[in-house]
C-alpha cells in the first residue's frame, strides 16, 4: 500500500479524509432534495450515499489510527491529536449507526413517512456537525502544528 503513495505523502490518511466529508455533505443535500421533491430515486440515492459515507468513514478512521503512530507529532500538538482521534471515533460510530438505521428504515419503507424523513434529515445534520468538529481538529494538526508535512530543505 505504501508503495502506491506519492513521495510527498506521509501516509494514506490525508488522501482519504476529504471523502467522508464530501460524501456526507452530498448525502445531506440530496436528503434535503428528497424531503422537498419526494422522488423515489432520491430516496434510494440518499440511502446509498449514507451507507457509502459510513464505509468510507470506517476506512478513514482506520487509516488515521495507523497514521498517528507513524507521523511525528510535536509535544504541544498531542492534545489536539488526542481529541482529533476521539472525535474521529465518535464520527465513525455515528456514521455507522446512522447508516444501519437508514438502511433498516429504507428496507421497511418507513422513511417514506414525512415525520420520519424529517427526523432522518436532522440526524444527518447532526452527523455533519460531528465531522465538522473532527475535520477542524485535523486541519489544526496540519496547518497550526505542521503534523504530516515536510519542510522545504
Amino acid at each position: 500500500m505504501e508503495t502506491l503513495l506519492p513521495d510527498w505523502a506521509p501516509n494514506v490518511h490525508p488522501m482519504l479524509v476529504h471523502f467522508p466529508i464530501a460524501i456526507f455533505i452530498t448525502a445531506i443535500v440530496t436528503d434535503l432534495s428528497h424531503l422537498l421533491l419526494k422522488k423515489e430515486w432520491l430516496r434510494k440515492t440518499v440511502t446509498a450515499l449514507f451507507v457509502f459515507a459510513a464505509l468510507v468513514a470506517l476506512v478513514t478512521y482506520l487509516s488515521g489510527k495507523q497514521a498517528i503512530d507513524i507521523v511525528s507529532v510535536p509535544m504541544r500538538a498531542e492534545l489536539t491529536a488526542s481529541n482529533h482521534s476521539d472525535w474521529g471515533l465518535y464520527t465513525m460510530l455515528y456514521f455507522s449507526a446512522f447508516a444501519i438505521v437508514r438502511g433498516f428504515l429504507f428496507w421497511k419503507e418507513w422513511d417514506k413517512k414525512r415525520m420520519v424523513a424529517i427526523l432522518l434529515f436532522c440526524g444527518g445534520v447532526a452527523g455533519a456537525a460531528l465531522i465538522g468538529k473532527t475535520a477542524d481538529l485535523g486541519a489544526k494538526l496540519v496547518y497550526k502544528y505542521g503534523v504530516g508535512i515536510q519542510k522545504l530543505k
Binding site: D69, E78, A81, D86
Partner: peptide, 20 residues
Amino acid sequence: TVSSAGEHYKGLLNEELVNH
C-alpha cells in the same frame, strides 16, 4: 519522553515512539 493527552498516553525514547 511521555505525553498524557486525554485518554491517550505515549512513551518515547530518544524521540522514537515506543509505547501508545
